[in-house]
């Protein structure tokens, strides 16, 4: 079904918070999801499970080198942090053995690091470049879901094989997926009581002036 960016952003934010993601990170993941979803609607099919998978402990940090290596990354929990590291020059290259959504990682780059030129490679093949809110990618990039042997780095230019992709100006999300996100979001809503119905909003139940 057609969904606006605004309602998608709002629901993704609520779903993240309802799924246990911290508010600030939920804001970033929701924006990132809407941004990458504009390139690949199918991405949303995986979002509810990505949110629910984000229960791992935080990454451990070793800042003695400008190159970081991580075994397994939950993108909802850690993607924002990875981009923080690139932005703050904490790391110049990040190697990840396994990540549960390469698309959401790209979306996070679009959202959080527009001023950087971030290159994503898989098995040393350049698959996507992000700069100034634009996504350049290989033909198959948008069909990727989880990925192994990923490299994230700041570069000065992208490979010629990467083509500029055009995002859609609207979003389509399956009804079933939307419902799953709503279920997660519902964890943020407080069940109604008679007292809250009468007093919580500060207005009466009828108004005839």
């Amino acid at each position: 079904m057609h969904r606006s960016f605004s309602e998608t952003l709002f629901l993704c934010y609520k779903a993240c918070v309802g799924g246990g993601v911290d508010v600030g990170n939920a804001q970033d993941i929701a924006s990132s999801a809407a941004k990458i979803g504009a390139y690949q609607f199918k991405f949303f099919d995986f979002l509810p499970s990505l949110i629910q998978a984000s229960k791992e402990p935080p990454l451990s940090l070793n800042t003695s080198s400008k190159i970081a290596k991580f075994e397994s990354i939950s993108v909802v929990q850690n993607a924002s942090f990875l981009i923080d590291c690139l932005q703050s020059n904490l790391y110049k290259k990040i190697y990840i053995k396994h990540i549960d959504s390469i698309l959401l990682l790209a979306g996070t780059c679009i959202h959080l690091a527009p001023e950087l030129k971030v290159l994503i490679s898989l098995n040393d093949q350049e698959v996507a470049g992000i700069h100034q809110y634009s996504l350049l990618a290989s033909k198959e990039f948008l069909s990727f879901t989880k990925a192994d042997n990923l490299k994230l780095e700041i570069v000065s230019q992208f490979d010629d094989n990467l083509a500029l992709l055009q995002p859609s100006d609207t979003l389509f999300i399956e009804e079933k997926i939307w419902r799953e996100l709503e279920v997660l979001a519902s964890n943020t809503y407080v069940p109604e009581t008679e007292h809250s119905r009468l007093e919580g909003a500060g207005a009466g139940l009828t108004d005839n002036d």
């Binding site: 600030g24 804001q27 940090l61 929990q77 932005q87 703050s88 904490l90």
Partner: peptide
Amino acid sequence: EITAVFILKHPEFRYIVR
């Protein structure tokens, strides 16, 4: 120390730090 390192250990403060 920089903000990124702090936020990694305390993601709950990302919102207010921003």
